[in-house]
Amino acid sequence: MAVMALSESRRRKLEMLTRCLAGGKVKDAQAVIDALHTPSRVTGPALPVQLAQAAPGIEQHNAAGTYWLIRRPLLEVSAELAGFPREYAAILRGSRQRFDELKASPALCHIANGLPDGPLFMDIETCGLAGCSIFLVGLMSFQGDELMFEQLLARHYGEERAILAEFADRLAGSATLVTFNGKAFDMNSLRDRGAFHGVDLGFTPPHCDLLHESRRLWKGQVPNCKLQTLEQFFCRRRRVGDIPGRDIPDAYHRFVSGGDAREMTMILHHNLLDLLTMAQLLCAALSGEQPDLSA
């Protein structure tokens, strides 16, 4: 039978509380609990790394509250990929002619017929599985002649509403939305959490879910259609030292409780790589590229 395991200290507190209640002394209970508290364990280095230092950004304010915005161009992230934004723009501009050859979804057609600055790439990070709150909305779009990352970070649980409201604004202003498994996961989570906070995401623009596009285009040619598998075959990149997705919720909780931003930078980097890979997959899809099986 699944029952929440009781720690020794907690059992003692609950017993004490049972006893106080039996005597009708609810008010005394706090004193008893206070007396029983063991000092909490001190872990980690004495000096936490500050967020402003680890992930420079600006505090943003909107009607729903405040949040932390980390804005940087691809150039700042990776010198090797300095040429990619130009390539990206060229493929998006040129894809109209080759469009007929594509086994494409309506959303992909929409992108092919639009401008490079049309797509808004989006990937979220959450505090756990379904039903949990969202702490990071990673966005990427083509601005000027550069791919720009904009990560909306809730520095604690109380800032979730502000990042959702900000995302709702961005979504309303974009021509297409590009995600990886966003139809089943990201957008559902955003809508559910938005409903809770009274933030209406409104009408979703055409949504290109690259998981579905990848399955349509490359199923059978690659071992599976997970993002990181596709990354190997199309971006010729393997992640080293990346924080695994399943470790992200706990790392974020630790960040909120302890304020040490070291793990936070890993989460931000993970999210950023996901966005970048999405852009590269979109290019591959539009240009009819096949997986590099030597990778």
């Binding site: 929440m4 505090c127 756990g128 949990c132 649980y157 909780h253």
Partner: peptide, 12 residues
């Protein structure tokens, strides 16, 4: 705020 990745109701 709940600060764990696990959902508590599955354990109650």
């Amino acid at each position: 705020y709940w600060r764990q990745a696990e959902q508590p109701s599955a354990q109650v």
